[in-house]
Write a protein that binds this DNA or RNA. Structure first.
Length: 531
RNA sequence: GAGUCGGUAGCUCAGUCGGUAGAGCAACGCCCUUUUAAGGCGUGGGUCCUGGGUUCGAGUCCCAGCCGACUCACCA
């Protein structure tokens, strides 16, 4: 018998005994608690001499003959329990002996302070509320240090529930991320925006430069794609005279995984009619300030400094979202930091020459836009620690943004940067249907030249524009990236509850390797049939 | 996609030159009525990621594969 099997047998035997004692750990449906663990800890001084009913999960047991101590956790806080045979009686004392680390438990008792000063509950009665069939790798903790808790990154991601139970830091980061989403909603709701939902399954997946996931809809015998952005449907709503709309939703891009990229991620896009870049900048400033205030209680957020060369210095930087963001022109800032004269940044040949002169490779550069984005990335981005807007982006990479009057090579677009990372992308939306059609045609030409990520033509969207769209500002923010920035996460998986992982093969399901591969082949066959 | 590193008990990790597989925690038994990474005595627990190869002998060396981590490249 393997260890896991024997442990399971032992746990099942304990459950059987608990049932004999009238303490079935799965029988109780509702436990009336007078206080949560957190309320008990925080209000401890005022709760003396009244019976408390508290529930949580046991994280450690210290049994000492005819007395025992245990730590009861609620995920955020813990309270120590004190059991004494003389106080609970023969039967419940046997129940105490049948408890395991990981059990859910409800207790009733009064407050007690131990000899060493620890706030505790002196248990008078207890009710098992669940018993795991596995030994949970919760480890032990002292002075904030954790020992032996589940730490392997792969196990943490694959069995996230164990990570949430065992690792308070991981738990806090994930919870903060959810609170960020909630705070974003609050801000937009309070500013007159309507939250909407648009299709995930699309025939034409547009609005961004990315490769979509393909799937098949049987009823219409039709290939469809998972959306890569929210943009075009939201602007169709603006055309429908819904003047302020936003959506927070999952988008899917069939690309690689890295510490900043997940194949599915959560996108926020919001569109506001009758406003321009200035209006959008004010919105972004307001949104970040409001989110920081709501989640962290301050507009100045302290996060670990991002420095790839020296990750463990422990240096922190204070990001101030209370002030208006710094604003720089893209060309001006590239020129200032690279030394290439601004005049040389307006045409492809001069820019390429300038790029070569500052020592960057130019073989793969085929457009002015590409060169400018490379120069931006190399010279400017690392300097943009405090919140900054970079204004004015080249037209080639901005097919949905209005042209700058008098400079057809540039668009009315800005990106926000924090900690050297892009955190938002916004522009004044094209509402001239003829201009938009030309931009799409340009993209289709790129696509035919082999750029799989260039935009497809979207006639339905163009029809909406031809029916009239008011001047509109739009903005997109990657919620996962936003959460990473605010929580100091180093990997996007740290702010995703269940990140994409390759399936484990031949393990854990009692399926033989040959059978497993046979199933794999059948699945692939079904896919081909679908496409 | 490329490079580097890793996979040993349920968890965290050692394992030297190729020579019987180790520790702590967790589990089980006994002692212990204010402990707190409780403590003491004892017991059980291994597909050393998988498959080949070299060898008298492989956790260790070689080859292939699987999974992961990190860095780089594309993208948000």
């Amino acid at each position: 018998m393997s260890l896991e099997e024997s442990l399971r047998e032992i746990r099942l035997a304990k459950i059987a005994r608990l049932r004999e004692l009238g303490c079935d750990p799965y029988a109780i449906e509702k436990f009336d608690m007078s206080h949560t663990v957190t309320e008990t800890v925080e209000g401890f001084e005022k709760l003396t001499d009244i019976p408390l009913r508290v529930a949580g999960r046991l994280h450690s047991m210290r049994v000492m003959g005819k007395a025992a101590f245990a730590d009861l956790h609620d995920g955020t806080n813990k309270i120590q329990l004190y059991f004494r045979k003389d106080d609970v009686g023969e039967t419940l004392w046997e129940v105490v002996g049948l408890l395991d680390i990981g059990d859910h438990l409800g207790v009733e008792g009064k407050t007690m302070v131990t000899r060493t000063g620890e706030h505790s509950i002196h248990v008078a009665a207890l009710w098992p509320l669940s018993k795991p069939l596995h030994s949970l790798p919760l480890g032990k903790a002292k002075d904030g240090e954790h020992y032996n808790a589940i730490a392997d990154t792969e196990l943490r991601y694959r069995h996230r529930h164990l990570d949430l139970i065992a690792n308070p830091e991981a738990r806090k980061m994930l919870v903060d991320r959810m609170l960020v989403t909630r705070a974003v909603r609050h801000y937009l709701d309070q500013n007159g925006y309507l939250e909407v939902e648009t299709p995930l399954l699309q025939v034409v997946a547009g609005g961004a430069a990315a490769r979509p996931f393909l799937t098949h809809y049987n009823a219409y015998e039709m290939d469809v794609k998972l959306r890569i952005s929210l943009e075009l449907y939201l602007k169709r709503l603006i055309c429908g005279d819904l003047p302020r709309v936003y959506e927070i939703g999952r988008v899917f891009r069939n690309e690689g995984i890295s510490n900043r990229h997940s194949p599915e991620f959560t996108m926020l896009e919001f569109y506001e009619a009758y406003t321009d870049l200035e209006g959008m900048m004010a919105r972004v400033e307001g949104l970040f300030r409001s989110v920081a205030q709501e989640v962290f209680g301050t507009s100045v957020v302290s996060v670990p400094m991002r420095d790839e060369r020296d990750e463990e210095t422990g240096a922190f930087v204070e990001l101030d979202f209370g002030k208006p963001w710094r604003r720089v022109g893209m060309l001006d800032e590239i020129s200032r930091l690279s030394g290439i004269p601004v005049d040389n940044l307006h045409d492809y040949e001069s820019a390429k020459a300038g790029m070569a002169k500052v020592g960057l490779p130019t073989e793969n550069e085929h457009s002015l836009g590409g060169i400018l984005e490379k120069l931006l990335e190399h010279f400017v981005e690392p300097t943009l620690i405090q919140p900054t807007f970079v204004v004015g982006y080249p037209i080639e990479t901005s097919p949905l943004a209005k042209k700058v009057p008098g400079d057809p090579s540039m668009t009315r677009r800005f990106e926000g940067y924090v900690l050297g990372r892009e955190v938002c992308n916004a522009f004044s939306e094209i509402n001239d249907p003829v201009d938009q059609r030309e931009r799409f045609e340009q993209q289709v030409a790129e696509r035919e030249k082999g750029d799989a990520e260039a935009h497809p033509m979207d006639e339905e969207f163009l029809f909406a524009l031809e029916c009239g769209m008011p001047p509109t500002g739009g903005c997109g923010i990657g919620i996962d990236r936003l959460a990473m920035t605010l929580t100091g996460a180093r990997h996007i998986r740290e702010v995703l509850l269940f990140p994409m992982m390759r399936p484990e093969r031949d393990r854990g399901f009692g399926v033989s390797p040959s059978r497993n591969e046979g199933e794999l082949r059948r699945d692939e066959g079904a896919c081909e049939e679908g496409e």
